[in-house]
Amino acid sequence: MSSGQSSHPFATRFSSSGTPGAALEDDLRTYLEDLYREKLYERLSAGYPGRDVVFNLLLFYADTAQTLFWKQDDHYDEALRAFSVLVGHIAETELDLDDLFYVFDIIEGFFDYEQEGDGPDHLPWLRQSIQALSDLFQEERYRKAIEDALDDKSRADFVYLISIAGWFYGADEFDLYMSFASKHYPELALSNARYWLLNMSDKQCQRFIAWARSCLPPEKLSGPLSRTQEYTKTQKAILDVVISDRVHILRNSQDRRDFMAWGLRAADTFMAAKAAYMLEDVPVADWPAGSQVIVEELFSLMQPHWLSYKGPRGKGAYVRSKVRLGELLEKVKGTDS
């Protein structure tokens, strides 16, 4: 779909009309007032407004869906009524792959925060419109476009295709992500780790760990530890994900020990510190040789205000990094006494 702006009053980009530094809801209110002034609902109801307008409003609702759908605000009422009309116009417009991504953003914006019996009063009557958008992905032309695009795993937008394929067609998202990570864009795939690594089966976990190991230097698993290793971007991404979500990913003691050793060898201070925090769960007697020296070095490098996240994702809290490292050193002193 064309991304050019026309002179139509509904073709002004939401992203270009806001005030720098303003909150999203403030910009949203201002933008909606402009649309309402031009009689948004009435003009959309009068007939097809043109491809540029459909494209622009599709982007607008994709950007703001979570706020419009999930916040009870009378000021959004006309926008929500107009959305239902817009859905009909979207259905009669020939969409390209990028357009389908925005349609999917709207659908996700509706479902991502849905809770049974909870939410604004308008949610129930929005369902029909959301279902109509969902039905588009079952049309043969769009399904084929997505399936054809999935054959090209070198696409930088492959992660968006994975989400759509998993949501609507029941595709194996783990397999698609693994293919994407191992062959083309590992850092991009790993940036979405929470979508495909946290609920792995044991077999999937073994496959992921085998790939991760193949990317890291095996010679760094022997000998005393020292913080001399400069890792590549891919290696850093792997270590960051694995160490940060070790509770879910590192399921046996050998994997925990090896990835901790790789992390502790990192020249990067924060990567090494993340690995050092793994020592919190290890008796001092079982620390790898050289660990104490590294903890002491990291303790001296840490600024008092630097923080780290301690605990399970979403259930932990930020604590001072220097305090955590200091507690590890106290743990060592306790075993010496």
Rank of each mutant, 00 (worst) to 15 (best):
L97I: 13
D77H: 02
L328E: 04
F168P: 03
W167N: 12
E296N: 11
N252E: 06
F174H: 01
I90P: 06
D172T: 14
G117D: 06
L86Q: 04
Q72S: 08
Y41K: 14
P217M: 02
K183G: 06
E108C: 14
T30I: 10
V332H: 10
K39Y: 10
K310T: 06
G166T: 11
T228D: 15
S222W: 00
A171Y: 07
I162H: 02
K315H: 11
A11K: 07
L100T: 02
D34M: 14
Q115L: 14
L123D: 04
D245E: 12
E296T: 15
L298R: 03
S226D: 12
D63S: 05
A11S: 15
Y160L: 15
G290I: 03
V284D: 03
K203A: 14
Q128I: 08
L325Q: 00
S7K: 15
H75N: 06
K236Q: 01
E327M: 05
V323L: 14
S45T: 14
E173F: 08
G50H: 13
T269C: 03
E33V: 04
R155V: 02
W196C: 10
E140V: 11
D151K: 15
K236W: 09
S129N: 10
L188R: 13
L307V: 13
R51D: 15
A212F: 11
R213F: 03
Y76M: 00
K39Q: 14
E140H: 09
T228A: 08
L68R: 01
E139F: 01
R51Q: 12
P9D: 09
A145S: 15
A132M: 09
G311L: 11
K322F: 05
D77W: 00
L216C: 04
D34S: 14
V54Q: 02
D77V: 12
P217I: 01
K39T: 00
E114T: 10
L126F: 08
P124W: 04
F270M: 12
I238T: 00
S163A: 14
M200V: 11
F10S: 01
E219H: 02
V242H: 02
D77R: 05
G316I: 13
E116Q: 14
Y48V: 11
T12M: 07
A210D: 03
L329I: 10
W287L: 07
L86C: 05
A132D: 04
V85W: 05
D73I: 02
D336F: 10
Q115D: 12
K203W: 00
D151M: 06
Y76V: 00
G109N: 08
D27G: 09
V53M: 11
V242T: 07
D34F: 09
F270Q: 08
V319L: 09
G119H: 07
M260Y: 05
S45V: 11
R324C: 07
I146Q: 04
L301N: 12
D98R: 04
D34L: 11
V295G: 07
S179E: 13
G88T: 05
H8P: 09
S214L: 02
A266N: 05
Q254T: 15
S244Y: 13
A267D: 12
G311T: 08
G263T: 08
P186G: 04
L80D: 00
H248L: 10
R81A: 12
G18F: 03
Y61G: 03
G47P: 07
S244W: 08
L40N: 05
S134G: 14
F299Q: 09
G314V: 05
